[in-house]
Design a binder for these strands. Sequence first.
DNA 1: ATAATTGTTACACTAAGTATAACAATTAGA
DNA 2: TCTAATTGTTATACTTAGTGTAACAATTAT
Lengths: 138, 138
Amino acid sequence: MSASTKLSTSVKALCYLSENDKPKNSSEIGKHIGINASKIRMLLSKLGKSGIVRSDSGMRGGFSLGKAPENIHLQEIYCAIEDRKAFYLNVNNTISKRNTSSDKINLYFLDLFSEVQIEIENKMTDITLKSILNKIKQ
Amino acid sequence: MSASTKLSTSVKALCYLSENDKPKNSSEIGKHIGINASKIRMLLSKLGKSGIVRSDSGMRGGFSLGKAPENIHLQEIYCAIEDRKAFYLNVNNTISKRNTSSDKINLYFLDLFSEVQIEIENKMTDITLKSILNKIKQ
DNA sequence: ATAATTGTTACACTAAGTATAACAATTAGA
DNA sequence: TCTAATTGTTATACTTAGTGTAACAATTAT
């Protein structure tokens, strides 16, 4: 799953959970948002480790929101699900030790891309699950 | 080639061309920046269509800069080489006609990602080949 | 004519993304 | 304590994207 797909899928799941007090299991969530239950469990188990959702194993178990929607930030979700470095911005080669102009250009782009990355993350810090819920209800 | 790899490779090639008055062929450029001559030709032929480089076929042909480095903007390079929509930000599913909350969330993220896209492109508009050349000479 | 070059297509290989299944560990409830 | 439902995790098969290279027609200087 790409970073952006994970992010939108997570938000779909969280929005669904926010509509329900009682825990929903991965199969219900999967059906609702149209993706496989296994995938849901893989995603939500990561969100569980960050306290964004609560997960209960066993009979009558399932997933529920771990925090109020106004306290869940997009950036937090993103960090919880994303192990790879961000939005797939990469330069061609690894940097050699010779410090050629190719290396310098690679470094230049790595810098540029991490600036972009920081801007994206800042943007996401300002977005809460609550604000998304409000927007999609319109 | 991913968008970001194409971009950094293009800049490497353009920097190399800026150091030379006479045209350089794809094989020389490829050797210098460490990628295959065919790939170079594929990239530079696109840059040629936008007037960023000049390309001459036949014996004693090759590639040379089509404009002064101060008039070549990163955004321009990016647009010339990139056929796909930008930095690989995508949401999971296509939007159905039922207008479900999943659809709304997809639309929400498509909007968010195109905002990001615009910010990235604006950032690139302010960067010229000249400014990159200055930075990497330091 | 010949040789060097671009522009373009094609192909094989590797890596990443997607969809699904399988199963141990856990837990509620009979 | 046994059973059924559930998570968490690993595995597998398949598809798509990315990478590296080759091939060859078209073009052009000598």
